[in-house]
């Protein structure tokens, strides 16, 4: 890879200052598990590399019963995976992490890095969107909070401005009678999916047979994760049986926007979305009932 000027700022303010100074010519490196590949393949040649990996103030998981979960952007996948709080309160997140890439990648790669790299087949983003996550974007100009569902623009493109740093992920507290799951269709273990679905369902507090609302987020079948809106609307307030699940699965498969590649045709990806929506809705509902 080509060389660069290297900075390792010690705090968020210094990072923002550097970003502001070198807008457009600088790249942030956190775990680098995606970035270093781009550098090695000479797909990017930043003049400046800002290494934030060692900034401890961005490495935390905080839980509050009412506020929910606040995760520092430099938390590694492995930390999230093994956090007792996350395993207890947001199991679908921890569960998704156990099958994300490999052990080594999870040990060094960060959540913030994954989100900002914006790989269309990320496992993390659809899962967080299903949990209605928000991200905090920080710059010298201040802070703004954005729903993760509005964070992605296109393949490898987000709404992050050149002088901004993603510093925190916030997941609102979830109601008791809820359940969620992420499943993907991949060819081998460690792969991202050729299709992935994250589903989070909240059951009616009086009648567990009724689904109050559901979030169904489709991954790897568009430039970024897509909410399966028609399917979500179909299930909202309804009793969830096989017939409604099948219809929701069919809608999802119609509404996604997969691109054919050497691993799978567009039709196969749509078919897998159908299968995954079927599976995840069933599972999310049953987890909600068991909660």
């Amino acid at each position: 890879m080509r060389t660069f000027k290297y900075f390792s700022p010690k705090d968020v303010k210094s990072v923002c200052t550097l970003l502001s100074e070198h807008q457009g010519e600088a790249k942030i490196i956190a775990g680098g598990q995606s970035l270093v590949i781009l550098l090695r393949q000479k797909l990017i040649h930043p003049t400046y590399l800002i290494d934030i990996k060692a900034i401890e103030e961005l490495n935390y998981i905080q839980y509050d019963e009412k506020e929910g979960l606040r995760i520092g952007a430099l938390t590694t996948h492995r930390t999230l995976e093994t956090s007792p709080i996350v395993m207890r309160e947001f199991f679908m997140l921890s569960e998704m992490e156990t099958r994300l890439a490999s052990f080594q990648v999870r040990n060094w790669g960060t959540l913030g890095g994954n989100l900002c790299h914006a790989d269309f087949a990320s496992d993390l983003s659809p899962t967080l969107i299903a949990l209605d996550a928000e991200v905090k974007l920080t710059s010298l100009r201040g802070e703004r909070k954005v729903k993760l569902s509005a964070f992605f623009k296109d393949h490898y493109e987000t709404i992050l401005r050149a002088d901004e740093l993603l510093t925190e992920i916030v997941i609102p507290a979830i109601p008791k009678n809820s359940g969620g799951v992420y499943r993907k269709a991949n060819l081998i273990e460690t792969d991202q999916g050729i299709a992935g679905v994250a589903t989070f369902a909240v059951l009616d507090s009086d009648n567990k047979e009724i689904c109050e609302y559901i979030r169904i987020v489709l991954g790897a079948v568009g430039a970024f994760p897509l909410k399966s809106k028609r399917a979500e609307e179909l299930i909202r307030g309804q009793k969830v049986d096989d017939a409604i699940i099948e219809e929701a699965a069919q809608m999802s498969s119609e509404d996604c926007r997969p691109i054919a590649d050497i691993h799978a045709s567009e039709e196969y990806k749509r078919e897998m979305i159908k299968v995954l929506v079927r599976k995840t809705v069933k599972k999310a509902i049953s987890r909600g009932k068991a909660a």
Binding site: Y6, I29, G32, Q33, V36, I37, R40, L49, D51, F103, Q104, V105, N107, W108
Partner: peptide
Amino acid sequence: AVKSCLII
């Protein structure tokens, strides 16, 4: 355990 080829 980490992959040294992906670490600066």
